[in-house]
Amino acid sequence: MRITADTGRCVGAGQCVLNAPRAFDQDDDGLVTLLLAEPGADEEAGVRLAAGLCPSRAITVHED
């Protein structure tokens, strides 16, 4: 599993940081930044939840 995040779409709601704090952070501008581009198995559930909750659909999960 691989994730990408589009800071152009991010509206800084912080859902990603709350739900998968090991995979996502907010930078000084409050926008999403990836801590793990290829999260391991323990992170998968949190990352999927975060991607589903992101109100601006800024997070994409790639299944490759």
């Binding site: 509206v11 800084g12 907010q26 501008d29 409050g30 926008l31």
Partner: peptide, 13 residues
């Protein structure tokens, strides 16, 4: 507006 305000409301802040 939103972009200018986001840093004030991050989880960390």
């Amino acid at each position: 507006f939103r972009k200018a305000l986001i840093p004030e409301f991050t989880v960390r802040r």
